[in-house]
Design a protein around this nucleic acid. Structure first.
Lengths: 112, 112
DNA sequence: GGAATACTTAAGTGCATGCTTAACGAATCA
DNA sequence: TGATTCGTTAAGCATGCACTTAAGTATTCC
């Protein structure tokens, strides 16, 4: 299993906060400005900016500024990191279960 | 999108630490005792126990004790939570891109 | 029974995280 | 030009996290 720990640390940590996940869910609907993104959250704008910084450092979100407006969008490529890691773990485990099943079947065959 | 925040918080937080991810990767190979699980890590056993507690509370790992040995195994069902959430975000986003593409194609058609 | 094994609990420490308020900067509008 | 809007920076604070060491508690082995 390939070890991309530093970025996986960042990605999972970014997603471990429900405010940040809600921000990602909002940005999955469409790109939006910082203040529009912030509007449903009962916290100060600097707090939202800090969450946004965490999301950007993780690679889950990108943004660019035009005039005084910063527009944010999600970057689905980074979601691939998460999906790949979990799928790798799962397939390793399920492959093992299959081999175990084969082994049990072999034993059953020998008993006859 | 269904909001399973409390458990998603726990699951993502559990996976945000490289030691805990390495523990999960080890347990994906096969179930093992606490001390075997702990053996490759350069930290005290209590530290490993604390990581294990986080993993168990998240539902990613289960364990049971027989005699003085506690055996740990991963629970792939909980991985489904992660996979579902990320897939939901991705499909929401990609659905939007498709609709945008349709719209662009409509405009192109109108130009002719 | 006594020693070794396999965990478990408790308490403490230093650093990271998630906020806050209070300014400040820069683009747009009247 | 002056006011407003949109975002940014800085500083501070309470809480949480990832460890540590030290001292337990059951089991199993000899």
């Amino acid at each position: 299993m390939l070890n991309e720990s530093p970025s996986l640390d960042r990605v999972f940590h970014a997603l471990a906060d429900s405010t940040r996940r809600a921000m990602v869910e909002r940005l999955a609907l469409r790109p939006m400005s910082v203040s529009e993104l912030a509007s449903p959250f009962a916290m100060s704008l600097p707090a939202v900016m800090q969450h946004l910084a965490v999301l950007e450092e993780s690679g889950l979100v990108r943004s660019h500024k035009a005039g005084r407006v910063r527009t944010c969008r999600i970057d689905t490529e980074t979601f691939g990191l998460v999906e790949r890691w979990t799928a790798d773990c799962r397939s390793e485990w399920e492959g093992r279960l299959d081999k175990l099943e084969d082994y049990v079947n072999t034993l059953k065959g020998q008993q006859k």
